[in-house]
Design a binder for these strands. Structure first.
Length: 479
RNA sequence: GGCCUGAUGGCGGAGUGGUUACGUAGCGGACUGCAAAUCCGCGCACCCGAGUUCGAUUCUCGGUCAGGCCUCCA
């Protein structure tokens, strides 16, 4: 089966055919770094990280180029910098570092390129110049505006009818606009804000042009895949495409071969957003739950559908992972007492062979819920092999499980560590001591003592599991 | 007002013109000293109405409800 992706432009799933299989390009709109990212912001990062991994698996690691930009010029950044009395770099560097660390905890691989607007300024100014000189943009009152009339297909991507758009506009149209839909490419900075030189006066770029310039510079048009949240469809992506193509590119070739948009994370039926105030910050969540559990939660629904983020979701995700880690743990213990556990690395996924059903699910427009179901099926097979006491089958099914899960960024930890996450040496020694006492008590059939020790362990948030040859334990609830 | 999504069991969430995945929670059983883990089994879940059909949760139309975009926004 071949990779099929839903293309927003066509409004249907299409087989994925890159322009050049040796150079597959994808671009995803990244964060504006002025604050902590909330879990809703993390959804596209994780979703497109999955696509990145799938593409690398199919086309090879060296053949996929993934750029995710960083917007580091913005009103909110200026406001924050002014409030703290520091240069904007101080703000953007701080939050970018946190952002990258948090996304890494969620298992997202670093993109090939992470261009920043402030470091793309020459290309932005040059691109605006091209648009002005070919009549696609005009200067007015210190601003440079894109002339939407210059692009015949304006509105095609988001299916916004131009006339209605004007009639229903909820904002006043600036007087210097030739057409109400025209948008800013360059604008003057306010007093005290960062400025960059340009032929139209000192100022700063509009938001949309940043992405077009960064795509041109880091990937080159046309790109194969352009991703982002559905809220960026209009006006951001519509504008990006209009200006990008009008800057001297062949309109018939197109801007992006596939447009992909992820749905929202909802909190209480409403979109999670800072203005509503119903946000859960990634930075705080990763202190409460393993990164893999959060990653799982973000992928438990199909990427295009809205996902309900509630209090139960993280815990349910952790339990789901417990089930799979449990199968791996059982397999490792079985193998340890037989021929030994083979050495593997979670990084091997690039060359590994995931299970067919698992891969087929991902290739069907990234159907991660179906892929998860395949993971549970593989776990069941591992357990069945153990019951059959077949070392060969355990080895085989365990490898399939690992190769599949690792491709998606799961099962990257040792199962023993997964179940005893956050346990320090002191606690470990204490628990091991109690376990030893309890094994002794049980051997002498002193059930009262055994139960009392188990109560002590429970108080330590430790769950003990008696086995035929001794006892094992794990942390019962997430921190 | 314009454009656009979605409505599946307690929760999350796939999918399908004809036994409704999967996980989690719950219930019964096996196993266990008792548990846990594991295994087996269970629960009349597809918004409403009409239509098409031998048959619709799945297709069509209408409705209701919810959400998104049109302004910074993943």
């Amino acid at each position: 089966m071949a990779l099929t992706l839903y293309d927003t432009m066509a409004r249907e799933k299409r087989p994925f055919v890159p322009t050049d299989p040796a150079r597959v390009t994808m671009y995803v709109c990244g964060p504006t770094v002025y604050n902590f990212a909330h879990i809703g912001n993390a959804r596209p990062v994780v979703v497109f990280d999955v696509l990145f991994r799938v593409l690398r698996h199919i086309y090879g690691e060296k053949s996929v180029i993934y750029a995710a930009n960083v917007t580091d010029v913005d009103d909110k950044i200026n406001t924050k910098a002014a409030a703290e009395g520091v240069p904007i770099d101080t703000i953007t560097d701080r939050y970018l570092a946190i952002y990258n660390a948090d996304m890494a905890t969620l298992g997202a691989l670093p993109p090939t390129h992470q261009p920043r607007a402030t470091q793309t300024m020459d290309a932005i100014v040059e691109m605006i110049g091209r648009l002005v000189s070919n009549g696609s943009a005009y200067a007015a009152e210190g601003h440079v505006l894109f002339n939407t009339q210059a692009y015949a297909d304006y509105g095609k991507l988001s299916r916004q009818p131009m006339d209605d758009m004007i009639a229903g506009a909820r904002v006043d149209v600036a007087p210097y606009k030739q057409h109400p839909a025209d948008f800013v490419l360059w604008k003057p900075s306010k007093e005290g804000e960062p400025v960059w030189d340009s032929p139209w006066g000192a100022g700063r770029p509009g938001w949309h042009i940043e992405c077009s310039a960064m795509i041109e510079q880091s990937l080159g048009l046309p790109i194969d895949i352009h991703g982002g949240g559905i809220d960026l469809l209009f006006p951001h992506h519509e504008n990006e495409m209009a200006q990008g193509l009008c800057a001297g590119h062949d309109h018939s070739v197109g801007y992006a071969k596939y447009w992909m948009h992820n749905g929202f994370l909802n909190m209480g039926a409403e979109k999670m957003s800072k203005s509503v105030g119903n946000v859960a910050l990634v930075h705080e969540l990763i202190a409460q739950a393993p990164g893999e559990a959060l990653r799982w939660a973000l992928l438990v629904g199909h990427y295009r559908a809205p996902l309900e983020w509630n209090g139960e979701l993280i815990d349910q995700s952790r339990k789901a992972l417990d089930r799979i880690y449990g199968a791996l743990q059982d397999a490792n213990r079985f193998l340890a007492s037989h021929g030994g556990v083979p050495e593997t690395s979670a990084e091997d996924w690039r060359t590994n062979r995931p299970a067919d059903r698992f891969m087929a699910a991902l290739e069907d427009d990234l159907n991660t819920p179906a892929a998860f179901a395949a993971l549970f099926e593989l776990s069941d097979q591992v357990r069945l092999a153990i019951r059959k006491q077949s070392e060969a089958e355990v080895l085989h099914s365990r490898q399939l499980l690992l190769d599949s899960a690792n491709l998606l960024g799961f099962l990257t930890a040792d199962p023993e560590e997964w179940f005893q996450a956050g346990v320090d040496e002191t606690l470990r020694e204490k628990v091991d001591g109690l376990i030893a006492q309890r094994v002794e008590a049980r051997a002498s059939k002193d059930w009262a003592a055994a139960d009392r020790i188990r109560d002590e362990l429970t108080a330590l948030n430790v769950e003990v599991m008696d086995g035929p040859t001794g006892a094992t334990w794990r942390i019962k609830d997430a921190v």
